[in-house]
């Protein structure tokens, strides 16, 4: 690994049914299409619905050695349990996108980190599809990190979304944009 080469480790977490795995796959797919190296590692288990779900995505310029993320650079948490579990592991200077619709507590990260609270559920409902929470959060993440565009993610979406859900492509794309807009405004406009 060359020193200072781009290397971003992300954990995305929530409960089963929030589209955690899809979010991770979309991030990985977008990064791959942008020519980066990626790994995507889902948690898997007996819980098919409900329970906790998380996935780890590593994005880099060079072949990725370890797909297992101990201390993430970025964290996207969609529920309280995930915040409690992963917040202490966030790296110093890291980024946390948290779904403030379901998280009513102030996070207490160990180190100095950037926290963007996004009312992702409310924003998704406003867009007309409450299932888009994950895309709102991912849009916010992409905006804050800046190494991939929301447009690139929207372009990659059909590749990871099962064909039977392709009618939701427009609303998911809108949700990615809404999340990005929200994050930009929240961060004071960049």
């Amino acid at each position: 690994m060359t020193k200072n080469a781009f290397y971003e480790e992300v954990i995305i977490a929530g409960f089963g049914g929030q589209g955690i795995m899809l979010t991770g796959k979309l991030l990985a797919q977008t990064a791959m299409q942008a020519g980066r190296e990626v790994t995507y590692m889902p948690s898997y288990g007996a819980e098919v619905r409900g329970g906790t779900a998380n996935c780890m995505v590593v994005i880099a310029d060079e072949p990725i050695a370890c797909p297992v993320v101990g201390r993430p650079d970025s964290l996207i948490v969609l529920n309280k349990a995930s915040l409690n579990k992963f917040c202490p592991r966030l790296k110093e200077g890291g980024l946390m996108i948290m779904n403030s619709s379901l998280i009513d507590i102030e996070p207490e990260p160990a180190d100095e980190v950037e926290v963007i609270a996004v009312p992702a559920d409310e924003l998704a409902v406003e867009l007309g599809n409450p299932k888009c929470t994950n895309m709102v959060a991912l849009g916010a993440y992409l905006q804050r990190r800046g190494y991939l565009t929301v447009d690139a993610a929207a372009k990659a979406l059909p590749d990871v979304l099962a064909k039977r859900y392709h009618k939701t492509l427009p609303v998911n794309t809108a949700a990615l944009r809404r999340g990005a807009e929200f994050a930009q405004a929240k961060a004071g406009g960049v």
Partner: peptide, 10 residues
């Protein structure tokens, strides 16, 4: 192993 089976890579 479970990691290799489950993880996605290009």
């Amino acid at each position: 192993d479970g990691f290799l089976g489950q993880m996605m890579e290009p």
